[in-house]
Design a protein around this nucleic acid. Sequence first.
DNA 1: TTGTATGCGTTATCAA
DNA 2: TTGATAACGCATACAA
Lengths: 348, 348
Amino acid sequence: MIEIRSLKVAGKVTLKHIADELGVSAMTVSRALNNSGSVQGKTQERILETARQMGYRPNHIAKSLVSRRTYTLGVVIPEISHSFFPEVIRGIEQVVYDKGYQIILAHSSEDAVREQEVVEMLLSKRVDGIMISCSQNTEDASFFENIAKTDTRIVFFDRCIEDIGISCIGVNDRNAAYKITEHLINLGKRRIAHLKGSGKVSITKNRLLGFEEALHQNRVNTFSELIIESGFQEKGGYEAMKILLDLPTHKRPDAVFAVNDPVAFGAMEAINEAGLRIPEDMALVGFSDDIRSPLMSVPLTTIHQPAYDIGTKAASKLIRLIENDKELQEKVMLISTLKVRESCGANQ
Amino acid sequence: MIEIRSLKVAGKVTLKHIADELGVSAMTVSRALNNSGSVQGKTQERILETARQMGYRPNHIAKSLVSRRTYTLGVVIPEISHSFFPEVIRGIEQVVYDKGYQIILAHSSEDAVREQEVVEMLLSKRVDGIMISCSQNTEDASFFENIAKTDTRIVFFDRCIEDIGISCIGVNDRNAAYKITEHLINLGKRRIAHLKGSGKVSITKNRLLGFEEALHQNRVNTFSELIIESGFQEKGGYEAMKILLDLPTHKRPDAVFAVNDPVAFGAMEAINEAGLRIPEDMALVGFSDDIRSPLMSVPLTTIHQPAYDIGTKAASKLIRLIENDKELQEKVMLISTLKVRESCGANQ
DNA sequence: TTGTATGCGTTATCAA
DNA sequence: TTGATAACGCATACAA
């Protein structure tokens, strides 16, 4: 039983305090606490016990200053209220926790300016790495290229900037978009619209590409007035759909492929308001398999993305990049699956 | 135009580097960068320009070591896949971003052991404060009391430990539970079950209290075999409901009040599997107004909680506690509202 | 207005 | 096995 002379309030006890308490040096305490092996058994025991009693908590700030490692990763997401992202975070959390890291969660609110600000902040906090899914108006690739040149590792997930040598974890967007568009074609649709994303991010480009390719390969006409930019949020989907609905009746689409499910929900609302039925008057499909999609009054046909796995893959990739200098950048495309429900008209 | 002799890769530039570059002292650079006012206009300009060109990024780790402030808050949630929590986080994010703080997100996965571990880690990272919603088996109040004694501020939200002098931001659970139970009584229900939460957290206790009180005040019998612990997750709701369904037919409840919506979803599944209809054979209500609740095939009657506001209030309270020594602990009860949908049988 | 010394809490390094 | 010293990057306090 060791009596502590100066009982400190937890949270402010330092190595020095423990050292003074026991009449040893701070270094010895450090070594004992870190189990370096070079401390006498008896001394180590006394130190451990005293540290416990004094409520010692290592100061990771000081540790980080010395080690230049924070064991903290930044995660930047554009919109936490899309169910896809919390699920990705669950996956990330699982991996980083096991590996002894923490995450700082930052939210860009679909705004590139705010995105850069939060990334700068993460960099100032000296996170060991960053996982990011870009905002809808992210354009400045050089911003990320410059970061990639530093010793801060970075990995994109879902919404990537491609071809700048930074890892990207997502699904095969192009192929999936192709498949779901072809599904509409097989259902007899011939005037197919696309509510496209924004900016230069991968999913905007690749989902559009897959869409166009499917039309082309199946000799279905492409109508440029049926490709409307909607961004990635419900509101944008609603507004983009309004534009399509304002077309003369014979020019209206018979099917709509939305870049993601929230956009499809917005479109759904506009279609309902116009008094049209889904899928009879207009088929509608999305992408991402939002938690609400199977529950809508007309369940939404969509592409299921393995969000949790995207999270685990992104996190393990990032940690490997941090911990292993020889680890290479890579593009990981997980398997997505077509979820046929009712909004496409297949199950009538 | 200033020529930089030693172009550093961004992220590793220090005050000293900039100072050497310009032949001034590090302190002058520090002052210039912090706009302390005591630097000559010309010098300051040169410093700012050089810092920009060299890609200087302040090292918040070092700053924090000196200032003992990290401008980082820990947020501990039990289950990120309940839509309530991401919405709370959105609210928190909004406030902390405006005030210049960051958040470290930690996930206890409904496990008290993990909860303590992540809190210890947050403390080691010297967060300025912690917002926490307890796990379902959190029991150790003294753990939090001890933290409250230190200079790390702490605030509970939604799931609190009460009466230990720590702020709690939530809704009036007891009153809301009373109201929704009385609603069932007014609908003629007389054998009402409660799927109760777990542990010592506020919502378990208060929702049960409100439930019992409503029965009592309205002279409706309480049946102890109809109060089953379910925890807070869907699975627990499913299993608890199975127990009720195994009761002899005449002893089964005619209505069920679940401690939250995920539990109600689990119960819903069990009821469906048993071939019973909601609400005809058994009414069902929840609490929290999950994003899925209005979309279920039988939309769920529930209590709506202002999740976003709970987040903003919790964050502003915490920041005030951090920044103002005279700020007092308080219990904030926001307004919740009864959302009558179809699962209770009112809209038939 | 600018610079020097010192300390924040920890660890690497070298010496004893 | 233990200790003294310096360093991590910055800011406070004081001196010039």
